[in-house]
Amino acid sequence: MKFMTDINITSPETRIRYTDPLFLIGSCFTEHIGDKLGSLKFSILQNPHGILFDPVSVSRTLDACMENRPTSAPSLFPLNECWNSWDHHSRFSGIDRDAVLAGINHEREKAHHFLKKSRWLVITLGSSYSYRLVEENERPVANCHRAPAQWFRKHLCTIDETVAVLDNTLHRLFRFNPDLKIIFTVSPVRHLRDGVVENNRSKARLIEAVHHLVHKFNKLYYFPAYELVIDVLRDYRFYDIDLAHPNYQATTFVLDHFRNSFISPDDHPLMDQVQQVVNARKHRAFQPDTEAHRNFLRTFSDKAKLLQDNYPFLDFSEESAYFLEALQ
Rank of each mutant, 00 (worst) to 15 (best):
D179W: 09
V229P: 05
R281H: 13
N279R: 13
E291H: 09
E227L: 04
V186E: 04
K282W: 07
N247M: 03
K181Y: 12
N200M: 09
L220Y: 08
P288G: 07
L213C: 09
N168W: 05
D289V: 02
I207Y: 09
Y222K: 03
S264W: 03
N218R: 12
K203T: 02
K216S: 14
V254R: 04
Q308K: 14
A225L: 08
L243Y: 11
R205Q: 10
F258C: 04
H257V: 00
Y311L: 07
L173M: 10
N310P: 00
I230E: 10
A280R: 06
E198D: 14
L173Q: 11
N168I: 05
R190P: 01
R259W: 01
A204V: 02
N218S: 14
P224W: 11
P312W: 14
S301E: 12
N177E: 09
H293W: 15
V277T: 02
V277H: 02
R234N: 14
S264M: 04
Q275W: 09
K216C: 07
P288A: 06
D240F: 02
P224M: 10
S264F: 02
A209H: 09
Y311V: 11
R298H: 14
V186D: 05
D256S: 11
P246T: 00
I207C: 08
P246K: 00
T251A: 15
F223M: 06
K181R: 15
D272K: 14
D240I: 00
L192M: 11
F262R: 15
F184Q: 09
F313K: 12
L228W: 03
V254N: 02
V274T: 11
D242K: 07
R190F: 04
Q273H: 12
T251D: 04
N295L: 14
A209Y: 08
F223A: 03
A280Y: 07
A250K: 01
V229R: 06
N218Q: 13
H293F: 14
H268P: 05
A285T: 05
A250N: 02
I207D: 03
I207H: 12
D179F: 11
D266P: 00
I207A: 08
D272A: 14
V186W: 09
A250T: 01
L180H: 13
S187A: 11
D267R: 04
H171I: 07
L213R: 10
S261P: 00
F300P: 07
Y236A: 04
N218W: 04
T185C: 15
D240C: 13
H257E: 08
F313N: 13
K219N: 15
E198Q: 15
V277L: 00
K219Y: 12
D179E: 15
Q275F: 07
N310R: 14
F296E: 10
A304L: 06
G195P: 02
N177W: 09
Q273E: 15
K282I: 01
P269A: 13
L243P: 00
L220Q: 08
